[in-house]
């Protein structure tokens, strides 16, 4: 279980659609879970109770390792984000992280200088509390990189 740490970037609450509440409930407990198809065992991303591989409506929520590597990243220096919550966020790293389980997921890289981030870098999940019953999974350089 990763700790739910103090936020370092804005942590706007997601609009939690009812069918993916188990994902967000887990984040509030510092757990990253992934929907896995009950029929064909494919991992589904982004989370939804529908398997794009076989068309099943049945998924179960499995615990992810929280480990991965950077697939791509950008250091947002002056760009204006879609969400107003980021207006005064300063310089931050938007990234796709490839989880060790396979899916490539959008996130931020935190707890390091933006200039240190590299494609292929090993990272681990941290959670930033939104204050509304959910936490954003973000990633920091892995302790054992």
């Amino acid at each position: 279980m990763a700790a739910v740490t103090e936020r370092v970037l804005p942590a706007p609450a997601p609009n939690v659609l009812p069918e993916v509440k188990p994902f967000w409930d887990a984040t509030a407990e510092g757990r990253l879970v992934l929907p896995q198809c009950v029929e064909c065992q494919t991992l589904v991303w982004y989370p939804r109770p529908f398997c794009p591989a076989c068309g099943s409506l049945k998924v179960e929520w499995i615990q992810a390792s929280g480990q991965g590597s950077v697939y791509s990243f950008t250091v947002n220096r002056r760009g204006q984000a879609d969400l107003a919550a980021y207006r005064d966020a300063g310089v931050y790293v938007l990234a796709y992280v490839e989880l060790d389980e396979g899916p490539r997921i959008m996130t931020n890289i935190v707890d390091c200088s933006p200039d240190e981030v590299r494609i292929g870098q090993r990272v681990e999940v941290v959670f930033h509390d939104t204050g509304q019953g959910s936490a954003l999974p973000r990633f920091r350089p892995a302790a054992t990189a």
Partner: peptide, 25 residues
């Protein structure tokens, strides 16, 4: 309220940022 927004927009996405990710890769 689009279904992917909760997994993308909350991280500070922008059109520019999404294209920058592609360029970097």
């Amino acid at each position: 309220t689009s279904p992917e927004a909760a997994f993308e927009m909350v991280y500070g996405t922008s059109t520019l940022g999404m294209y920058a990710l592609a360029a970097q890769r």
